[in-house]
Design a protein around this nucleic acid. Structure first.
Lengths: 336, 336
DNA sequence: TTGTAAGCGTTATCAC
DNA sequence: GTGATAACGCTTACAA
């Protein structure tokens, strides 16, 4: 490999290494003849600067870190994350940054990942996806003043920079939509308790019920995880209730698909007997039978705001607005 | 931020900075008392080494690069990539490596990305996914001896380290399966020409036809891209042929779902009148109607072999076997 | 305008 | 055993 350094370029060009550096940095006060000489040598030998040395000196790595909180297995199954990662790569790339992705498997490894990426100065800043209500890293990150942005929410909301879907509003809209369609026994099949998305969507669901004067029933709320299996089991249980729901809001499309399966297995007509709404508007919503109504979250907007915000934070150390909310939209298909 | 360096630890411990380094590297010949003193200072102040400085010195970054060849948009839609990325993160992480992901949008940016990652020494090695038959980077990478591994294929096959699905065998198996089910007008809806996966699957398809004595017809082969839309359009066209196919092998599940839509739109029964097989065994295969038979590719195996191979290449510079093939498996559901 | 030299935070090779 | 000291490749005062 042609491991060329500025020093070698300098010798080949018969100038000092500092001059090579100046030429590369576009310093105006360098003689045109020398500049040309250096440039032609660089051109000829194909010099590329060493990013490590540059960043050691400049204290900037040009890399962003992305840490997600799901196991590789969950990651692999959930289209939300692939879309998010893809969009972040895109926007980071446009701004001249690279992206280092890590998945925090177990809770105890979170600390490790944050240490490994930020404190080792591998990255200039961090994007954290969906922190939990209890997240030990947050206080430390805040205290040490590292640049980081959350996709999701953390309490107190204005302590951190964060971008989030309007989960409360979206769940309320979806539930109101079901209510308008004359459903009043509406179930909410959720993910884990203590995860903000789940709690927020729950809150929106409750708000819609309350506004419509419907008595919320804890029988109709099922907490679990983000899997299709959970959706299936929870919905099966709900349908065997003495007074089963006629509609269900799922926290996730995967969960909704599971619920859909349970409904169809019991030969209930969708949407006539049971209506189903999912979340995320995943690509497969169009392909399931019947096509699944879903709340579309604007993943690209989420990614763009988070990335731009983080870069501004890195480059300017301070940004006025701390909390950004991206609106969602109900995409109605045949399941409602 | 507590930007602690070995130097500061040294002063606090009242030893030389070299001793701090020795303690950290576990050098045996250091006095136990000093070692304890240093360790307690490190413990107390929470020192973390600077990865950039380390790698500048050691010539290793501890980071792998992953470059995929699809646009962020395609990336976002295709579950194959999220699964692959997730698995690579997992295996790289287990081996103590981080992962830097980049997407090569346009052809001309490929060169740039390779330069940016490898030659700037941001990463120790590269995993390239699905190179094209014409890939300008390959000769340069080879010539300069950079450690890299392909997921996919490149000609001549034994010039590069690569891991691949048994695409030829899998397509042959799938086609033979259709033939056994008494289909003899079998279509192949492919992705782009010149992409190895597409060409290889085409070859397997042809082999099966030839072995069964069925005359291949170019009318029944549709080249296009990896989109659902292409699957739909191609299949629509095929079905309006005077002598339409009774079965279709799609290069991809997304394409297969598009084909399925075209078939259902024309009210042909699946699988009675038209059988459909996809590729990748994506999560949504279970959710479409009817559930889609698909060739399961072992993404985790692909990721594991590629990652381990690359790491061996980085750490040992030479590995015996250059080409690895991962078998696939037909997962039969209701569409065949 | 150009070159010399001091760092950036490590690791590794010297003497002592 | 331990402490200076020289790299690693780059940026940037400071000198000339």
């Amino acid at each position: 490999m042609p491991e060329l350094t500025q020093n070698q370029i300098a010798k080949l060009s018969q100038v000092s290494q500092a001059t090579v550096s100046r030429v590369l940095r576009g310093d105006p006060r360098v003689n045109e003849e020398l500049r040309q000489r250096v440039l032609s040598v660089i051109e000829k030998h194909g010099y590329v600067p060493d990013a490590r040395a540059q960043s050691l000196r400049s204290q900037r790595t040009g890399t962003l870190g992305l840490v997600v909180h799901r196991s590789p297995k969950q990651l692999a199954r959930d289209p939300f994350f692939s879309a998010l990662i893809a969009a972040i790569i895109e926007f980071a790339g446009k701004a001249g940054y690279h992206l280092c992705v890590d998945a925090a498997r177990a809770v105890q490894s979170r600390q490790a990942i944050y240490e490994e990426l930020l404190r080792t100065r591998r990255v200039d800043g961090l994007i954290l996806v969906e922190p939990q209500t209890q997240d030990e890293r947050m206080p430390r990150l805040l205290e040490e003043g590292f640049p980081f942005v959350l996709i999701g929410r953390y309490e107190p909301t204005d302590a951190v920079y964060s971008v989030d879907n309007d989960n409360i509003g979206a769940a309320r809209t979806a539930t109101e939509h079901l209510i308008r369609k004359a459903h009043y026994r509406i179930a909410y099949v959720s993910g884990p308790r203590g995860v903000f998305v789940c709690e927020d969507r729950y809150q929106g669901y409750r708000q819609a019920l309350e506004r419509a004067g419907i008595e919320p029933s804890s029988d109709l709320v099922a907490w679990g995880d983000f899997s299709e299996e959970h959706g299936y089991r929870a919905m099966s249980r709900l349908l065997s209730l003495p007074n089963p729901p006629t509609a269900v809001l799922a926290v996730d499309d995967l969960v909704a698909v599971g619920a859909l399966r349970a409904v169809k297995e019991r030969c209930r007509a969708v949407p006539q007997q049971v209506a189903v709404i999912g979340f995320n508007d995943s690509p497969f919503c169009n392909y399931v039978e019947p096509p699944l109504s879903s709340i579309a979250v604007d993943i690209r907007a989420l990614a763009q705001i988070a990335t731009d915000l983080l870069i501004r934070l890195i480059e300017e150390r301070e940004v006025h607005q701390r909390r950004y909310i991206v609106p969602c939209q109900l995409v109605e298909r045949s399941s409602t």
